[in-house]
């Protein structure tokens, strides 16, 4: 619901939830941005049978958590530290995605403003 409320501002910019960035990723940055690296490798993820939607950039921390759960089962509460790490990583990823969205929105607004100025 919160996302829905947030999309009110982006109606006229043709933006929706699952969009990929359309602008070049280095515009407006002083230093060069590098692509994120996937730390966990494919064989580890396949042998742990992690579902596809969880194989993102935080998957190595997830694997730590899963290993810790398996070791301590049924006293899973002992893995609270690993879970906290995973949640932190996911939150950072989420914030990064929010920032990308915001960046996209502002670049589109800027583009629209530049087009209006060039038309008038």
């Amino acid at each position: 619901m919160g996302h829905f409320l947030g999309t009110f501002q982006t109606r006229d910019l043709d933006m929706e939830m699952n969009l990929q960035p359309t602008f070049d990723s280095n515009i407006g940055f002083k230093t060069r941005r590098t692509q994120r690296k996937m730390v966990a490798c494919e064989e580890d993820l396949m042998s742990a049978r992690v579902p596809p939607q969880y194989r993102d950039y935080c998957a190595h921390i997830l694997l730590n958590y899963l290993v810790c759960r398996y070791k301590h089962m049924p006293f899973v509460y002992k893995c609270a530290h690993e879970k906290h790490n995973y949640m932190n990583c996911e939150q950072a990823d989420y914030v990064l995605r929010m920032k990308e969205f915001e960046r996209e929105k502002r670049l589109r607004q800027r583009e629209k403003r530049l087009k209006q100025e060039s038309n008038s």
Binding site: M1, G2, V50, P51, Y54, L62, Y65, L66, R69, P74, V76, Y77, K83, Y86, M87, E90, Q91, Y94, V95
Partner: peptide
Amino acid sequence: MWFIFSYPYVIYLPINL
């Protein structure tokens, strides 16, 4: 909650929501 959810749900919401 500890037993079933192997893959934790990530919730990130503004404070009022």
